[in-house]
Design a protein around this nucleic acid. Structure first.
Length: 368
RNA sequence: GGGCAGAUGGCGGAGCGGUCAAUCGCACUUGGCUGUAAACCAAGCGACCUUUGGUCUUCGGGGGUUCGAAUCCCUCUCUGCCCA
């Protein structure tokens, strides 16, 4: 169930209800692909105030596998995480592991990126795996051909995605008698407004608990992405959650919220943290308190300029990294000597930055 | 005192007459990461020139052979190992 509590022009804030609790929206979901948010313990996420994480069907299927997931009672039990989990379907891996797969109408033949083992991934299998994981929000197995793609490829992408969405819907309807999980459809169509419209229309006809927009933030200029959102969001049900998959940079999230998006996920805060790049508020923001997180920049901690910089990463941040007295100089040093603590401290900060950003957006919807 | 081996760019370490401003690794500098095959990848890393490119100074010091030397010869200095 999804309830909208506030609206401001196209933007809205609300609550997504799941068996593992409420998710205030707009929401950002940090990525725990393999059932672990890299470098963080659950207690870190609790401290940060994170409400929901994303895990990946494809990766958890390879290891630990369906059998183990069932035996240990699902991913919540396994990783001892009590809040909601959304699972991506593996559709993104069809794209990112393109060299290791072959797409057909029935499904996708994959070779494991781990040991080369071949298997056949279908919408039904994707749903079985997500059931074994026990995720609160499950995604349909979709297909998109990358960017740029020609019209024929994108039409094929929409056709397969709709067909597979029907099959996912069928499996999900049968198996969710006891547990209540939500199933989201994924709109494809790349940059063609009419194909986006066709995809949205076909998915609405099937009926889902929420609608995701996929196939964006895959190399196209941000302006193109905003245009696609302008054309696509109005075609989605007004009272149901909308999820922009894989986005993105903080300003892209702001732009998408303005256009009516409720949910986000992205590897950037976690991956960038591991790579020594941290998001911080800029000085101008100190002056314009009201505008809060609109003003930010990214620091490359390996830059020589931080060698003796005694400031915290972000004086305006209340995360444990920034309030514990760790300096930019120390973080830079830890990265330079490859101490694991560097990635941990930076990840705590970046995830906090995103969670704070979304919290501020929810509180001050009109300001953004 | 004698014998042998060796000295190459910040470090390690290739090269052993021309295609060498010198493979490679590390370090260093700067970029990039968008539903995570990513604690990763890329570029740069003697000086100067606006460039595809060009010029200049380099391979312990000095001298020599050669059209041409980091590569061959002589010598000096230093280092390591062995014998006294």
């Amino acid at each position: 169930m999804f309830t909208i509590t506030h609206r401001w022009q196209q933007a809205r804030s609300g609550q997504l209800h799941t068996d593992h609790g409420l998710v205030p929206t707009p929401a950002f979901m940090p990525i725990a692909t393999r059932g672990s948010l890299k470098h963080l313990a659950n207690s870190d996420l609790t401290t940060i105030g994170n409400d929901i994480i994303l895990a990946n069907t494809y990766h958890l299927f390879l290891r630990p596998g369906i059998k183990v997931l069932k035996q240990v009672g699902g991913l919540h039990q396994f990783m001892h995480w009590t809040k909601p989990i959304l699972t991506d379907s593996g559709g993104y891996q069809v794209f990112s592991l393109a060299r290791l797969r072959l797409v057909s109408p029935d499904g996708v033949r994959f070779n494991s990126h781990i040991d080369g083992h071949e298997f056949f991934f279908t919408p039904e299998l994707a749903m079985d795996i997500q059931a074994a994981i026990g995720s609160d929000i499950r995604m349909c197995f979709d297909y998109f051909p990358g960017y740029p793609a020609n019209r024929a490829q994108v039409e094929e992408s929409v056709r397969l995605t709709t067909n597979w969405a029907e099959r996912c819907r069928a499996v999900h309807s049968v198996e969710t008698s006891r547990e209540r999980s939500l199933l989201f459809g994924i709109v494809q169509g790349s940059t063609w407004p009419d194909l986006r419209a066709r995809s949205a229309s076909e998915l609405r006809a099937i009926g889902f608990d929420g609608y995701a927009i996929g196939g964006l933030a895959v190399g196209e200029p941000p302006e193109i992405m905003y245009h696609v959102l302008d054309a696509t969001v109005p075609l989605l049900p007004a009272e149901q959650p909308r999820y922009l998959m894989g986005v993105g940079q903080p300003e892209q999230i702001l732009q998408a919220v303005k256009r009516g998006i409720d949910m986000f996920d992205c590897v950037l805060p976690t991956r960038n943290a591991r790579h020594g790049q941290v998001y911080v508020h800029t000085a101008s923001q100190l002056v314009e308190q009201n505008l809060s997180l609109v003003h930010y920049t990214k620091l490359s901690l390996d830059n020589l300029s931080y060698q003796t910089d005694s400031q915290p990463l972000d004086p305006l941040c209340d995360c444990s990294t920034c309030t514990s007295g760790y300096s930019r100089a120390y973080l830079r040093y830890l990265f330079s000597v490859h101490e694991p603590l560097a990635a941990r401290l930076a990840t705590v900060h970046n995830v906090s930055f995103y969670i704070q950003l979304l919290r501020d957006i929810r509180i001050n919807l009109a300001l953004y």
